[in-house]
Design a protein around this nucleic acid. Structure first.
Lengths: 210, 210
DNA sequence: TCGTTAGGTGAATCTAAATTCATTATATGA
DNA sequence: TCATATAATGAATTTAGATTCACCTAACGA
């Protein structure tokens, strides 16, 4: 019947699962993992508590699935940008410029990510996956910076530290703005970040690198 | 008897309270507020659970006292640096350089601060005080940057954004290093931060600001 | 129509932790 | 030494919230 290999029932089930995840994401991002109960998720998603357990083995499992889903989506986009065409300067600029888009599309998850999973964190069993995703982005950003430095485009800074600085700054601003998203204000804000980091990294004209 | 106005008993009590706070700080910083029980704090401090309640009305109250104590101590030092003598450049440099010292002396609290109170956060009732402390530091740092820009020492960046960038970078590194503190490595790391931000902020020689 | 099955339901149960409080120990000073 | 006050104790109670499960309901094929 459907255009996929899934039966209608299966599609329904998947949709229900997504509804639960979506409601949970909203709540978790607003109040944090420990301050949201399964009851509340049930109410918000208009299911019964018991039903949640038809989809997820535990609250923690639900959270993990959420984190993995969203994390994958976001990091894969970032990796495409970092691995994409263009000079180091262009790609780094795109990376920073993309933040507002990410924020608009995934505001709730960004909040969740920064507060529960970011550099800090709640302890979860299978956090492995997420570590890998983040590491993948960081490695690429570091590499990009290192290349830019070698080519004499960027000043001779430490790529690892600079990566951390850029990421933590973006995370912080993302978190602050995820609540009350205002496209214009946010875009403007990230332009300032761009000027801070990009201009601060460029080798001043007429000077040699190192 | 004592050199203060406190009786011996009172001093004893105070010491006991400090012992509890100290044990709690260690645990909270390692595992986070929600993952530490009053039982555990009792064991670690070698008191009975009930005794904790002779000192603090609730677990949350205990946490708040901890946060306020340490927060005050740290921010007051930072404010002294930011308000101190010296040019904007010198004071900003000192601010960043002071991070390792802070980290060495207050590693546990730094961890706690970043994970539970930093820009993100657990919801607590009387978080007001802490907000004020942080705001006091941020305002001064912004002001310092603004002055530096006006005097043509720093590039024309946004002081508020730059403040956030510097703080979040320092916080992130502090958090990462609070666990396994290594003076040499940490000092080296913060020197790189210094180069990243300070050098990146300076107006290139022979050029005019704006 | 009827039996079967996959979800769905939510009250009941279980669990981990916070909080209380009757009891015990210790110190002080008459 | 004894009376009193102050602090310490930890078993018992309470509470909040996760998890279970015996029971529904709707859809589908026979």
């Amino acid at each position: 019947m459907g255009k996929t290999t899934l039966t209608r029932k299966e599609r329904e089930k998947l949709r229900h699962k997504k509804e639960i995840l979506s409601a949970a994401l909203k709540l978790f991002s607003e109040r944090g993992f420990h301050n949201v109960s399964m009851q509340q998720i049930a109410e918000a998603s208009e299911f019964a508590v018991g039903s949640l357990y038809n989809f997820f083995a535990s609250k923690e499992a639900l959270f993990e699935e959420l984190a993995n889903n969203c994390g994958e989506e976001i990091t894969s986009t970032l990796i495409i940008i970092l691995d994409g065409p263009g000079t180091e300067l262009e790609r780094l600029t795109n990376f920073i410029r993309y933040a507002p888009v990410l924020l608009e599309e995934h505001a709730a998850f960004m909040r969740l990510y920064v507060s529960e999973l970011g550099t800090r964190g709640v302890k979860l069993s299978k956090r492995q996956e997420k570590e890998d995703l983040v590491a993948a982005v960081n490695t690429r950003l570091e590499q990009l910076l290192a290349n830019g430095i070698r080519k004499g485009v960027f000043r001779c800074v430490d790529p690892a530290i600079t990566t951390k600085a850029i990421n933590s700054t973006l995370e912080t601003l993302a978190f602050e703005n995820a609540g009350h998203f205002d496209k214009v204000a946010v875009t403007e804000m990230f332009e300032k970040v761009e000027r801070l980091f990009i201009d601060g990294l460029l080798v001043p004209e007429g000077q040699d690198n190192e």
